[in-house]
């Protein structure tokens, strides 16, 4: 990568980051929502941990990765709305008229998505810790969880951007997102151990990227980390994110042709 791409990426990321900071309402919501989930689901499903075969001592310990991953999905799947707004407002075209490196525009999205997701994940880890959650895997386990959720965030961010550029309709993004969020979350080990799921759900969960992030994170966070599971699930995540970013680059190029 040439230095121009790096500096352009930095400027475009900085712009998005400032926009994020300047919208305190948005910032607060991205932080409050996981708190609500953490304590709502924590209270609702507390007894789940006592089901024979569940495996975990405290439901809160179990829930923290679930909420982290669900938040990563739910906050990034709206990325396409922002892109759509930039298209409609003419901002994207304004940048395309400048000599800015084209790849920098998309890189900035990826960098921004992973940074905000990592930040959000760290906050949830801290909130869980305040609430009494234990992280037997220590720092390495938490790092794996945060990285996995960031990669997952990138996947959903890139798909959402591609969708925004492709359909150019808010309604489609809203429709698909509300349709996907809960099934994707509940067809994973976010709130319930897969061993206690009906068999067909277990099968579906195996192909669910949300579950890959959870498996990678949980495997690393347990007292006896299963690094093979971390690597294999993490590998699939990285592969899928590469595919998602590639797709968003492709749709970006077709957008440029349609201007």
């Amino acid at each position: 990568m040439s230095t121009a791409v790096v500096s352009d990426t930095w400027y475009m990321t900085q712009r998005q980051f400032m926009a994020f900071l300047r919208q305190p309402a948005y910032l607060i919501i991205t932080l409050i929502q996981p708190v609500i989930w953490l304590f709502l689901f924590g209270a609702l499903f507390r007894k789940v941990a006592t089901i024979p075969g569940f495996g975990s001592g405290s439901y809160l310990d179990y829930l923290v990765p679930g909420v982290i991953v669900m938040s990563a999905v739910s906050s990034n799947m709206w990325a396409g709305m922002g892109t759509l707004e930039e298209i409609e407002r003419g901002t994207l075209n304004r940048f395309l008229i400048t000599p800015v490196r084209r790849s920098a525009l998309m890189n900035a999205n990826v960098v921004m998505q992973s940074l905000t997701t990592a930040f959000q994940s760290v906050v949830i880890v801290l909130l869980g810790w305040i609430g009494g959650a234990h992280y037997p895997g220590g720092a390495p386990g938490l790092i794996v969880l945060i990285v996995a959720s960031s990669v997952l965030g990138t996947i959903f961010g890139a798909f959402s951007n591609a969708l925004g550029m492709l359909v150019r309709e808010r309604e489609s993004i809203i429709g698909i997102n509300t349709f996907l969020l809960l099934p994707l979350t509940f067809l994973s080990s976010a709130f319930m151990a897969t061993t206690l799921m009906p068999h067909w759900m277990q099968v579906v969960a195996r192909f669910n990227p949300v579950n890959w992030a959870l498996e990678a994170g949980r495997s690393a966070m347990s007292a006896h980390a299963d690094w093979w599971s971390v690597l294999s699930h993490g590998g699939w995540l990285v592969l899928l994110s590469a595919a998602a970013v590639w797709l968003s680059m492709r749709t970006f190029r077709s957008y440029q042709k349609s201007v």
Binding site: R15, M18, A19, R22, Q23, R89, G90
Partner: peptide, 8 residues
């Protein structure tokens, strides 16, 4: 259409 970033 103004391409200016309204938040900035």
């Amino acid at each position: 259409r103004s391409g200016a970033d309204p938040v900035a």
